[in-house]
Design a protein around this nucleic acid. Structure first.
Lengths: 342, 342
DNA sequence: TGCATTCAGTTCATCGATGAAATGAGGTGC
DNA sequence: GCACCTCATTTCATCGATGAACTGAATGCA
């Protein structure tokens, strides 16, 4: 790096490096990629020239030739949701193990944006795509056309032949509900339902698990205990809880469909001088890092985020390298992490 | 999109599309880029062919030819810190307005990784780079060589000629400290100091502002009230607060150098049955979305994150498009957002 | 009518790195 | 001493889209 000379406007190419080192561009390529044998002294001359000229490889050229970009796309609804920033962070770490950089796209959970992603209109010609859809659903399979090298995350929206990494949403929701029932809570509400999305979405499946468990104990399903939240943001959790508290018969426990909603709910409780779990128990879903440090610490579902990230990237790698054959479906196990809020 | 035909293994090129539409590749290019006039019927034939063949442009080829990749890099310490995921999210939105996709790199605040980023070893040949360094400092200017089209965020670590977007760290810290002093607190501690990083780092500047304000009121600076935290994570905030509470004379207020530390601190307080601000006041820095919803809601410094994101991207755009001349430095104003924790 | 201009499209070279195949120097074996 | 092989390096074509320059036809205008 020392003695690095600034090449003004000119781009330095392998040919330039070669000229300086007394070899051809091809030999420079061999040195840098390590793909062929090079005499030690030649290697050293080349590396010195690289240094002196401040050479940087043109990845576009390499990609054009090799057909690999060294980049994968990651399309998620919103980096502002703890779960997704956590997931993205983990996926980036896994991707790096495969030598991939990650281009993140926020869909905002908008259908049109999700379609644009799939159509490739927005996609930087990447080696593959990891995609967590939200607004798409069954019946949209046709938009998969042309998307091999795709891993779907989260909702199993497509029945088509695609790799998929998901979680046991219904079972996990049932687990959370059962826990509350076992602790004696009987007026259990949920926050995060969303009738506008498909029946195989996380929102619907978690509601199913909740309903199933209530039914198993012959506890009536009360519509006023199901709070709709189009977005699973802090604010929705807060207003959702407020709404529940203003009911004639408020719930004694609330199952929030993600941790972010739960934090919002805890906030609304505290704002009224109420406490979890004494006044209202609160349980979340995702076990994001903050869950351990909220006030009170949040009882929540651990969905195996680390596993999901690893599986998704490995699956994509298998697909890209042609190792994969039939579409694979991986469902991580969820577990309950008991803390203080319920 | 209907009738999309899956081309098996072959890549579809503009030439293929052209053949089907009865024109040359160049005309296809004209249609898709809109760079030259094309007769309506020709345009339509081409678009139909694009659809039927499921054509997707090869961005590597385009980039090689045009010298633009349509991608910028964003290097930040850790997406797991609320401030950075918030910042990243905003930067991505701004970047999209300029037609850029964003490749995020997590440096983990490691010096070697930060150097690798600057050297371009890890960088995907991008149109530009927005870089928030943490471990680098004055004296590392030489590593800037070869990095035009770079915007430095946060710490003004380099004295070299680089675009920089920062915040008024010292003044903001003084503002927070002054607020606490005005409210009558006298035993004010801080969490987040880091002697290992440079004197122009956020950690050092915020400590300066704190010390300056104490001095202005002739209040002694007590070493035991300065808690070191290499990382500004939840856990560090929590252990930092625990450490302070176990002092013979615990502080009556704590200024945390970011909100994440503050949330950790609030957690540690609550775990001991103590409350903010009654037992110990807590003030943060960053005004992340969660600050409004924590228990209690966090009094904190608003650093103008939205401005920072916008400025950074605009500045980079100016640089890339050659509109920029002299290196620019932009410092956003910070303000205090008073909530309940202090 | 005649010359300039515009329009729609084409031709050709090129961006920079790499796969495939060729070259040439040196070494080995018989 | 000659065929044969290995190793290091070179030559050449190519990936797919686009800038620049060009062609031929249609249009405008004096």
């Amino acid at each position: 790096m020392k003695g690095a000379v600034r090449q003004a406007m000119t781009t330095v190419t392998m040919a330039d490096v070669g000229k300086r080192a007394g070899v051809t561009a091809r030999t420079v390529s061999n040195v840098l990629s390590g793909s062929a044998a090079v005499r030690p002294d030649t290697r050293e001359r080349v590396l010195r020239a690289v240094d002196e000229l401040g050479y940087r490889m043109n990845t576009s050229a390499r990609s054009l030739r090799t057909g690999r970009t060294g980049t994968i796309g990651l399309a998620i609804p919103d980096l502002g949701i703890d779960y997704f920033s956590d997931l993205a962070s983990r996926i980036m770490v896994e991707a790096e193990r495969h030598g991939w950089a990650v281009v993140i796209e926020q869909t905002g959970a908008r259908r049109e944006t999700e379609l644009a992603i799939l159509s490739g209109a927005r996609r930087q010609h990447a080696d593959g795509l990891i995609f967590q859809p939200h607004a798409l659903g069954p019946g949209d399979e046709r938009f998969l056309a042309g998307n091999d090298r795709l891993v779907i995350l989260g909702d199993r929206i497509f029945h088509g032949p695609v790799d998929h990494v998901g979680m046991a949403n219904t079972e996990a929701a049932a687990l959370a509900t059962r826990y509350l029932l076992d602790r004696g809570y009987r007026r259990i509400a949920v926050i995060g339902s969303n009738p506008q999305v498909s029946t195989v979405s996380a929102a619907s499946l978690r509601l199913d698990g909740y309903a199933r468990e209530l039914a198993a104990r012959s506890i009536p399903f009360r519509d006023e205990y199901v709070v709709v939240a189009q977005e699973w943001h802090l604010r929705n959790g807060s207003t959702g809880m407020s709404q529940l508290l203003s009911l004639a018969e408020p719930p004694d426990a609330v199952f929030c469909f993600n941790d972010t909603l739960a934090f919002g709910a805890l906030h609304a409780l505290a704002a009224r001088g109420l406490r979890a779990p004494d006044d209202v128990a609160v349980i979340g879903f995702d076990n994001v890092p903050m869950a351990e440090f909220s006030v009170p610490p949040l009882t929540t579902i651990e969905p195996g985020t680390a596993q999901i990230a690893k599986h998704a990237v490995d699956l994509l790698a298998a697909r890209v390298e042609g190792r994969a054959t039939a579409p694979t479906e991986l469902i991580t196990d969820c577990s309950l992490v008991v803390r203080r809020s319920a």
